[in-house]
C-alpha cells in the first residue's frame, strides 16, 4: 500500500530546535577547590588511601568511595596534542588552534588546555595564563 503514496517527494521534514535558555552547572566542593587553585596558580589533585592521586580532584576517591586529601601537583607535561581547524559548527577557523591534555607524573587523569608555541607531546610545560581555559607553552 505504500508504493503509491509514499514517494520521496511527498515526505515531510519538520525543522525543530531543542532549546533551553541555559544550563547552570554547579562545580561542587572538589570542583570549587580545583577552580580556586587555578586562580591562585596551583593544581590540586586528590590523594586516596591507596596512594593514588587523581586530577581534577573529586569529593570521593572513585576506587573505594572514601574521602581523600587534597595535594598540590607540580611539573605538568604535555601528553597529547592536536590541532583544531574547524569550530563546532563546521566553519573553518582563520587560524588553527592547538589543544592538548596535560598530565602529572604519578597522578591519574589530566586537564584539557590550549597550547601555544612549539611544545611537543612529552615536553614539560608551564602555564602561560592561569585562567580558564588554561594556556600552556614549553617550559
Amino acid at each position: 500500500m505504500w508504493s503509491k503514496k509514499g514517494r520521496i517527494e511527498d515526505l515531510i521534514f519538520w525543522k525543530g530546535n531543542m532549546e533551553v535558555e541555559a544550563y547552570e552547572y554547579d562545580e561542587g566542593n572538589a570542583g570549587k577547590k580545583f577552580i580556586e587553585g587555578i586562580k591562585e596558580g596551583k593544581f590540586y589533585g586528590i590523594k586516596c588511601s591507596s596512594g593514588k592521586v587523581y586530577v581534577p580532584p573529586r569529593d570521593y576517591c572513585p576506587e573505594d568511595m572514601t574521602e581523600g586529601n587534597y595535594v598540590e601537583l607540580t611539573e605538568p607535561y604535555l601528553d597529547l596534542l592536536t590541532e583544531v581547524r574547524e569550530d563546532s559548527y563546521g566553519n573553518k577557523l582563520e587560524k588553527p588552534i592547538k589543544v592538548g591534555i596535560i598530565r602529572f607524573l604519578n597522578a591519574k587523569g589530566g586537564i584539557i588546555v590550549r597550547v601555544e608555541g612549539d611544545a611537543k607531546e612529552g615536553d614539560k610545560v608551564k602555564v602561560i595564563k592561569w585562567e580558564w581555559p588554561l594556556v600552556v607553552g614549553k617550559a
Binding site: F13, W14, G16, N17, E19, Y23, E24, Y25, D26, E27
Partner: peptide, 12 residues
C-alpha cells in the same frame, strides 16, 4: 557555577 547555552537543531 558554569553557564552554558546548548544549540541543537534538528530536521525530523
Amino acid at each position: 557555577m558554569i553557564r552554558y547555552v546548548p544549540k541543537a537543531k534538528y530536521s525530523y
